[in-house]
Design a protein around this nucleic acid. Structure first.
Length: 886
RNA sequence: GGGCGGAUAGCUCAGCCGGGAGAGCGCUGCCCUUACAAGGCAGAUGUCACAGGUUCGAUCCCUGUUCCGCCUACCA
C-alpha cells in the first residue's frame, strides 16, 4: 500500500488536482464532439467582485451539474466569464482617482476608460482565481468578458436592430436619477426602503381672496418647481377654487388649480402640488394638462438657478432652509410623522431623485409577450415552479426599460447626433455622415448602455453571435441556468426576451433558482453589518470539499440559507470518515490485487446487502439530481457512506478479511467496487478528496475520476431478500447492544447471549450469520433457538420476531432492568392504544385503502406480541425477586 | 396597496402524491473494540405557530389569526 496518512489534509491535494485537470484539458468542451451537449453559462460575476457565499453556492451547484453530466457522457460545457459592471466598476476607479486628488473629468473620457481597463487587467481576475479554488470546472479557454470585442459587437447589433424596429426610442421622461453616480437608473436598480419621514402640509394662498389651499408633500423642496395644484374633479371642497390661480409661496409665482381624476381625495387634503419635472405622476398630469416642467435641481442633487435663493444648496439642505422660511411666512399648516418608501441607488444607496431627462428606452411589451408564452408553454421551466408566478406578474406589468447611463465605463450607445439637422443616426459602425442631411457634423452619443443590456445577451453573445458559429449551433439553447432569485427580473427575464428575439429560441431549458445565503441569524450579509463569511476562509479552514458539501446540503428548494460554520465542520468530519474508510480498504488490498466486479449471486449476506443498498443509493442520487434536489442527493450519499457502508458493512467485512479464501476475495472485490462507485457518485460534490482517493484504486479504467463514468443502476444488485435478512440480523445485534448500553456494560466486556426466535426462518438467518452477531455485538457462546428458556438473572430485549437474553448473574440490577422494561412497555402500549382506536373505527376499516388497513393490522399484532412478551419478562422479574427474598 | 414564502427537537434545517415526526450539530451514559476520539455504541428531547374546516385519518389540503422575511406598486 502506498503512503496513506491517518487523516485527510485538503491542503495537500487540492491545488495538485486542479492543476492536473487543467493540464489534461478535461474542462474543455469540443464544439465538434458528437456527444449530446449539456451547457451552462455562468451568471457572470461583477469584475469588481470577490467571491462571497452566494457565488460559492451558485457555482458549486453549477459545478455539480456540469461534473455529473460530464461523467455521464455528455459534451459538457460550462462557460465562464465576468461582467463589466458599469456603475460599480466606475465607482471603484473613481474612488482611486479621488484618493489621488483627481477625478475622471480632469482625466477626460478616453484616459479614464483606459484607466478602467488597466484596473480590470490588474485586479479584475480575482474572482476567477477564487472560482478555481472552489473547484469550478469551467471551460477557461472560453472565458468571456461583457466588454470583449465580440460581445460588444453583439451589443451594437442588438441595439441597431431594436432601434430600426422602433423598439428602442429616445425621449424626455421622468427617470430615477442617482445624484451621486450622476446617472439614470432603471426601475429595477432602485431599492425601496421604508423610511420614517414627515408629511408637510403647506398653505398656498389664493391671489384674489384671503382663502388658501393646503397641499401635502414629503419632499417640500420640489415645490419650487410646482406648476399647478391638482384636485379631484368631483371634490366638492375645492369646487370654487378650480381654475383659479394660487400663489406659490417663497417662489412668488402664480400657478393654476386644475382637476385630475388621478388625485386621491382621501389622501392628505385632497389637493396635490404638481411638479412635472420631479415626480413621475406629476409628469403625467403635466402632459395631460400641458403644464410646463420646471427643473429646480442639477444633476448632482443641488438646487439650480430656478430655486432662487436656494441655488447651490443640496436638496436636503434646501429642504431644511425652505421649511424654515415657510414656517416664518406662516405657510406651514402642520407636519405629520409619515412612513413611506424611499428609493435608493442600488450601487451607492444614495436617495434617488425622480428627474426629468432625455434618455434611451426599450419598448418592452412586445418583447415580453413571447417570453411569457415560453414559460407558460413549458419551453422554459423555472425551478422551483413557484417563481413562475412572480415572473408572470412582473412580465405582464412590464414597463419600458431605461437603458442609457450617464457614465463612461460601458458600451457606448451606437447613435450619432447631427449638429446641423438634429437627426439621429444609429449604426453598427461609426458613420461618416448624418443619415438624414448628409452632414459630416455628427457626434456620438455620450451615454453608455445599462450593464444588464449586455448581460441579457450573454447566452448567445458568448457563443459567438452575431456570427453563425459552430459553438452556437452546438450549445444554444443552453441546458440549464443556475441563479439566485434576486436577479430574475434583472437578468433571467431579459435573457429570455432577448434570446427569443434574436435567436428565435429560448436561452435555456431549465432555470434553477436557488436561495439567498444569509448569516446564521438570518441577516443578509453585508459589509456594513460585518457579518460577511468569506468562502476562502472556510476553504482554508475546512477544505473545499466540506465547504461545497455544506452548501449543497443546505440547498433545499424554497428557503433562504442560514449559513453555519458548525455545519462545515461536520462535513469536514465526513471527509475524514471517507478518508479513513478508504484507508481501511487499502490496508486490506494485497499488493497485486486485481479487483473483479462482484457477482451478485455467490456472496455473503453483508456483501449481497451492501450491493443492494449501493444500487438503491445510485437510484436516489440520479433521481434527486434530475430534480435539482441537491440537498436530498447530499443526504442520500452521506447516509449511505457513513451509516450503511462504514457503520455496518465495514464492520461486517472484517471477519471475512481476517480469514482466507473465497469469502475474503469476494469481500475485497465488494469493498473496492463500493468504494469506487461511492467516490464516483460523490465526485461532483467533493471533487478533490474523491480524485485523491480514487487514484489509489487498483485497476481504474480512466486516468481521472473527472472523466470516469457516473454510476448507473445495476438492477442485478437489487436484493430485497438480503435487505430483509439483514434487518433480522441487525435487530439481533442492536438488541444486544441495547442491553449493553442501557446497563452501562463496558464494550471491553464480552457478553453471553441467548436468542429465542419465534419462527424457523428467523432462527435460520441468525444461525447462518452467528459470526456477525458475535463480532458486532461483542458476544460469545450465543445460543439461538425456538425453545430457548430465559435464564434467571438476565436482562431482556424484545424485538420483532425474537427475544434476547443476556445473563448477568449477580451483576443484574433488578430495579434498573425493571424500569427499562417498563419504559419500553409504556411506549409500546401507547402506540398500541392508538392503533386499536383506529382499527375499531368502522369508517376507517371501510374507507381507508386496503393496504393501509392491512399494514396497521400487522403492526398491531406485532406490537401486541411484543407487549405480551415484555409483560412476561416483567412477571419473571417479579418471580425472581420473590424467590430471592425467600 | 397587491403578492409570495416561512413558523417542525436546545440550535440549523429536511419532510416530493394526506396513513410511521426525521437528519446534522448539541446534550447524557459507556468506551482509545487493530480505518477513523474529526471516532464507536447506546440514550433523552416535539401541542409540527394559533383557531376553525374538509377527511375514516391532517405537519401536509382549505379558511382565518398572529409573528418573521422577501418581492412589487403612481402611499402626494
Amino acid at each position: 500500500m502506498k503512503e496513506f496518512s491517518k487523516s485527510y489534509d485538503p491542503k495537500r491535494v487540492e491545488d495538485k488536482w486542479y492543476q492536473f485537470w487543467i493540464e489534461k484539458g478535461y474542462f474543455h468542451a469540443d464544439e465538434n464532439s458528437p456527444k449530446t451537449p449539456f451547457s451552462i453559462v455562468i451568471p457572470p460575476p461583477n469584475v469588481t467582485g470577490s467571491l462571497h457565499l452566494g457565488h460559492a453556492l451558485n457555482n458549486t451547484l453549477q459545478d455539480i451539474l456540469i461534473r455529473w453530466k460530464r461523467m455521464d457522457g455528455y459534451n459538457s460545457l460550462w462557460l465562464p466569464g465576468t461582467d463589466h459592471a458599469g456603475i460599480a466598476t466606475q465607482n471603484v476607479v473613481e474612488k482611486q482617482l479621488k484618493a489621488e486628488g483627481t477625478d475622471r473629468h480632469t482625466l477626460g473620457r478616453d484616459a479614464f476608460v483606459k484607466r478602467v481597463w488597466q484596473w480590470k487587467e490588474e485586479y479584475g481576475g480575482r474572482i476567477i482565481h477564487q472560482l478555481k479554488r472552489l473547484g469550478a470546472s469551467c471551460d477557461w479557454e472560453r472565458e468571456r468578458f461583457t466588454m470583449d470585442e465580440g460581445l460588444s459587437k453583439a451589443v451594437r447589433e442588438v441595439f441597431v436592430r431594436l432601434y430600426e424596429e422602433g423598439l428602442i426610442y429616445k425621449g424626455d421622461y421622468i427617470i430615477n436619477w442617482c445624484p451621486r453616480c450622476r446617472t439614470a437608473l432603471s426601475d429595477l436598480e432602485v431599492e425601496h426602503e421604508e423610511t420614517h419621514g414627515k408629511l408637510y402640509y403647506i398653505r398656498y394662498p389664493l391671489k384674489e381672496r384671503k382663502k388658501s389651499i393646503i397641499v401635502a408633500t414629503t419632499r417640500p423642496e420640489t415645490m419650487l418647481g410646482d406648476t399647478a395644484v391638482a384636485v379631484h374633479p368631483e371634490d366638492k371642497r375645492y369646487k370654487g377654487l378650480v381654475d383659479k390661480n394660487v400663489l406659490l409661496p417663497i417662489a412668488e409665482r402664480l400657478i393654476p388649480v386644475i382637476t385630475d381624476s388621478f388625485v386621491d381625495q382621501e389622501f392628505g387634503t385632497g389637493a396635490v402640488k404638481v411638479t412635472p419635472a420631479h415626480d413621475s405622476d406629476d409628469f403625467e398630469i403635466g402632459l395631460r394638462h400641458n403644464l410646463p416642467a420646471l427643473k429646480v435641481m442639477d444633476e448632482d442633487g443641488r438646487m439650480n438657478n430656478e430655486a432662487g435663493k436656494y441655488k447651490g444648496q443640496d436638496r436636503f439642505e434646501c429642504r431644511e432652509n425652505l421649511l424654515r422660511d415657510l414656517r416664518a411666512g406662516g405657510y406651514i399648516e402642520k407636519i405629520e410623522d409619515y412612513t413611506h418608501s424611499v428609493g435608493h441607488c442600488y450601487r451607492c444607496m444614495t436617495a434617488v431623485e425622480p428627474y426629468l431627462s432625455k434618455q434611451w428606452f426599450v419598448r418592452m411589451k412586445d418583447l415580453a409577450r413571447p417570453a411569457i408564452e415560453a414559460v407558460r408553454e413549458g419551453k422554459i421551466r423555472l425551478i422551483p415552479k413557484g417563481w413562475e408566478n412572480s415572473y408572470f406578474d412582473w412580465m405582464l406589468k412590464i414597463k419600458d426599460w431605461c437603458i442609457s447611463r450617464q457614465i463612461w465605463w460601458g458600451h457606448r450607445i451606437p447613435a450619432w447626433h447631427c449638429e446641423d439637422c438634429g437627426g439621429i443616426t444609429v449604426d453598427r459602425v461609426a458613420p461618416v455622415e448624418c443619415r438624414h442631411c448628409k452632414s459630416n457634423n455628427i457626434k456620438q452619443e455620450e451615454d453608455v448602455l445599462d450593464t444588464w443590456f449586455s448581460s441579457s445577451l450573454w447566452p448567445f453573445s458568448t457563443l459567438g453571435w452575431p456570427e453563425d458559429t459552430k459553438e452556437l449551433r452546438t450549445f444554444y439553447p443552453t441546458t440549464a441556468l443556475v441563479t439566485s432569485f434576486d436577479i430574475i427580473f434583472f437578468w433571467v427575464a431579459r435573457m429570455i426576451m432577448m434570446g427569443l428575439k434574436f435567436m428565435g429560441d429560448v436561452p435555456f431549458r431549465d432555470a434553477y433558482i436557488h436561495a439567498l445565503v444569509r448569516d446564521s441569524e438570518g441577516q443578509k450579509m453585508s459589509k456594513s453589518k460585518e457579518n460577511i463569511i468569506d468562502p476562502l476562509v472556510m476553504i482554508d479552514k475546512y477544505g473545499t470539499d466540506s465547504f461545497r458539501f455544506t452548501l449543497t446540503a443546505f440547498a433545499s428548494q424554497g428557503r433562504d440559507i442560514r449559513f453555519s460554520e458548525e455545519r462545515v465542520e461536520g462535513y469536514k468530519h465526513f471527509c475524514n470518515k471517507i478518508w479513513n474508510a478508504s484507508r481501511f480498504v487499502f490496508m486490506n488490498i494485497p499488493e497485486d490485487f486485481r479487483p473483479q466486479t462482484p457477482d451478485s449471486r455467490l456472496l455473503t449476506l453483508p456483501n449481497r446487502w451492501i450491493l443492494s443498498r449501493l444500487n438503491h443509493v445510485i437510484r436516489e442520487v440520479r433521481k434527486s439530481l434530475e430534480d435539482y434536489r441537491f440537498n436530498e442527493t447530499a443526504s442520500s450519499i452521506y447516509q449511505f457512506i457513513w451509516h450503511e457502508f462504514c457503520d455496518w458493512y465495514l464492520e461486517m467485512a472484517k471477519p471475512a478479511l481476517s480469514g482466507d479464501g473465497k469469502e475474503k476475495e469476494e469481500t475485497l472485490n465488494c469493498l473496492t467496487h463500493i468504494l469506487d462507485i461511492s467516490l464516483r457518485l460523490l465526485h461532483p460534490f467533493m471533487p478533490f478528496i474523491t480524485e485523491e482517493i480514487w487514484q489509489y484504486l487498483p485497476d481504474r479504467n480512466s486516468e481521472s475520476i473527472t472523466i470516469a463514468e457516473f454510476p448507473e443502476e445495476i438492477s442485478d444488485y437489487s436484493n430485497p431478500r438480503a435487505e430483509e435478512e439483514m434487518s433480522v440480523l441487525t435487530a439481533a445485534i442492536i438488541g444486544i447492544r441495547n442491553i449493553r448500553g442501557e446497563m452501562n456494560i463496558s464494550p471491553s466486556l464480552e457478553l453471553n447471549a441467548l436468542i429465542r426466535t419465534k419462527e424457523d426462518r428467523t432462527n435460520e438467518i441468525l444461525q447462518r450469520n452467528l459470526l456477525y452477531i458475535e463480532k458486532l455485538a461483542r458476544a460469545h457462546d450465543i445460543r439461538i433457538g425456538k425453545d430457548i428458556q430465559k435464564p434467571r438473572m438476565s436482562a431482556t430485549t424484545v424485538s420483532e420476531g425474537m427475544e434476547i437474553y443476556v445473563p448477568m448473574e449477580e451483576i443484574l440490577n433488578v430495579d434498573s432492568e425493571r424500569s427499562r422494561l417498563k419504559k419500553d412497555l409504556e411506549k409500546l402500549e401507547k402506540d398500541m392504544a392508538l392503533l386499536s382506536k383506529k382499527l375499531t373505527n368502522e369508517d376507517f376499516l371501510s374507507k381507508a385503502p386496503k393496504e393501509v388497513v392491512n399494514k396497521d393490522r400487522t403492526k398491531y399484532s406485532t406490537l401486541a406480541e411484543k407487549v405480551k412478551r415484555l409483560k412476561d419478562s416483567i412477571e419473571k422479574l417479579k418471580l425472581m425477586e420473590k424467590e430471592a427474598a425467600l
